[in-house]
């Protein structure tokens, strides 16, 4: 199988590491060769962050470059736009509709762009936009947006739900598992 590339993008602190670990765990359970490339350190402090997940028969480079991604999972709308150029032709975006103003917008040096979803669709991208923040709050914590989005993504990938549940068990600390299961279920039911 040709190597597939997924990018998980968002703002530092939104929980992309957990999302990438859940997805990586699912893919490993499916018997794929998997590489997950994370970002730590400086950029985690509220900056634009990206995690790469690649899988297939053999994976070499852990990174994804422009024009290479099959799917982008975005926790924030502006970040979906920022990384959209990394998609292949025919690529998909699953994004939260949450918006977080970056510092240039806060200081007034720039404005937060409008019409992002329309523009993405205009680029020929298959866009799924979900209010993951509200669903996460409904599940019990705004922090669970990441797992809501994994629920949305799980419907788009051809793997048994049981495998996703097992990945949740392995990646989420026990005291948060019920809340995250709820978040995942709300994501699966969304759209």
């Amino acid at each position: 199988m040709e190597t597939k590339s997924v990018m998980i993008v968002g703002v530092g602190g939104q929980g992309s590491l957990l999302a990438s670990r859940i997805l990586g765990n699912v893919l490993l359970q499916q018997g794929f060769a998997v590489k997950v490339s994370e970002v730590h350190g400086m950029s985690q402090r509220g900056g634009s962050v990206v995690t790469y997940v690649k899988y297939g028969d053999a994976v070499y480079s852990p990174t994804v470059e422009k024009g290479e991604a099959d799917v982008i999972i975005s926790f924030e709308l502006l970040e979906a736009a920022r990384w959209a150029g990394y998609l292949k032709k025919g690529g998909k975006i699953v994004t939260s509709t949450q918006t977080l103003d970056p510092m240039p917008v806060i200081t007034g040096a720039a404005t937060y762009p409008t019409g992002i979803i329309e523009n993405l669709k205009g680029m020929g991208i298959d866009v799924t936009a979900v209010d993951a923040l509200s669903l996460a709050e409904q599940a019990g914590s705004a922090k669970a947006s990441n797992v809501v989005l994994m629920g949305v993504v799980s419907k788009k990938m051809d793997f048994d739900e049981a495998i996703w549940q097992e990945a949740l068990n392995q990646c989420v600390p026990e005291k948060f598992i019920d809340m995250n299961r709820k978040a995942f279920a709300l994501g699966r039911a969304a759209e």
Partner: peptide, 9 residues
């Protein structure tokens, strides 16, 4: 698009 540099939390 506006850049999103890292910031103090």
């Amino acid at each position: 698009l506006p850049i999103r540099p890292p910031v103090m939390c």
